[in-house]
Design a protein around this nucleic acid. Sequence first.
DNA 1: ATGGGTACCTGTCTGC
DNA 2: TGCAGACAGGTACCCA
Length: 286
Amino acid sequence: MPELPEVEVTRLSVVERLRGARIASVTLGKPLRWPLGCKPETLIGRRVADVLRRGKYLWMPLDDAGSIAPAGGLLLHLGMSGSLGFAEGDAAPGPWQHFELATDRGRLRLTDPRRFGAVVWGDRAADGPGSWPSTGRAAALLATLGIEPFDPAFDGAWLRARLRGRRVPIKQALLAGDAVVGVGNIYASEALFEAGIDPRAEAGRIGPLRCERLAAAIRAVLGRALRAGGTTLRDFRDAHGMNGAFQHEAQVYDREGQRCRRCGGVVRRLLQGQRSTYFCPGCQFR
DNA sequence: ATGGGTACCTGTCTGC
DNA sequence: TGCAGACAGGTACCCA
């Protein structure tokens, strides 16, 4: 579900409350995608130092509280159907709430019906540079990620260099996340529409000018989605329970058979790598 | 190295 | 009404 805008909206909705919160207990429900990777007791008594985002991951570095335990934090992924929220009162966890971090600032819960999400302990060097995980699974998950789309270094030249030689369709290259992060199935279709590029175009054969347009389109679309509070197709909510509104702004996503808002042609759907792609044949070219 | 397919899991909707 | 099948925002992993 959540692509970069939804993850960032989620982050913004929890960061103030969690920053400085002291962990009192950890409760696990059904297994998520990966095991937590540490004993829950390891977390107790530590404070959440911050809530950061990298791609579609959230990273919560923990103060080590002067304990003998290793320095580290929690890496969260919302998968396809995950969302975060704070439990009200003493409500028992719902059937889809598989992780709870009880703190002195409230009880953070991950709700995730499909359980493609994850919460993973990440080690970081106690005196290492920065606060990101340095070893283990959490570090490995972050290691292959591409550039952040809002990084000033991300532009057409960067994109073109990362796509060079790749023969997969551009839509699939964007989803792979090793060139630029955060673009999922919705925003890949939307960005390609905005850039006027056919999703079937060979990634490595897109010229400099069109790469520039695509990089700009990715930033523009993600920015608009962020300002709209993300996209809520079904279950996405931020931690305040707010829906996103970008689905009303989508030009092609989930609009198969409807009129293109730009040219009046008919929006088409096709399958690429088992995922639906939406595009307008009248506005997008190879 | 790249690319294709499979797998994980559950809910919802469509069509027969 | 029941039921099978398709499909859903992600991505690691295995094999060619």
